[in-house]
Design a protein around this nucleic acid. Structure first.
Lengths: 66, 66
DNA sequence: TATTAATGTCAATTATGTTTTACATTTGTT
DNA sequence: AACAAATGTAAAACATAATTGACATTAATA
């Protein structure tokens, strides 16, 4: 699974810490999701996509090995 | 988080076991997700939504307490 | 260059998702 | 009623997500 959170953050001009605050998780959670270290739950994916005003599919994308 | 997997399955007329096979998880995983016992990972949500040919947001929905 | 903001990372811990096996219950069909 | 298919459920084990706190590094700016 890949994501483009970094790009979406840039578009909205918000930091990892700000995004973390908005969806009530730790900054490390955002950091590790963004860097692909782990796959978030659907609750987080929906919240993140909602912040960016994009469908989940535009922020998170399945890869071959998923 | 709530979901309407049961409805989507009915539309496509597939069983829990069939859905499980399609996305390579156990039938119990489908059963417990469908009955709201736990929230799936984003990988599973994307795969499930893809089977139903619906955006993730149409299958999984955030609630107040999420 | 010095300072601050932002990001990266690590270790430890807790919480949650997922699998497996197995059995019980419900629903549909003959 | 009997049988089969589908669904519900439970416990144990394992895998992964998420938090916390702390510190290192990089980027931006005065």
């Amino acid at each position: 699974m890949k994501n483009n959170i970094r790009v979406q953050r840039a578009i909205k001009n918000i930091t990892q810490a700000e995004l973390a605050d908005m969806i009530q998780v730790s900054r490390q959670t955002i950091n590790t999701i963004e860097s692909g270290k782990y796959v978030p739950s659907t609750v987080l994916a929906l919240k993140i996509a909602r912040v960016f005003e994009k469908p989940v599919e535009e922020v998170f994308e399945l890869e071959e090995d998923d």
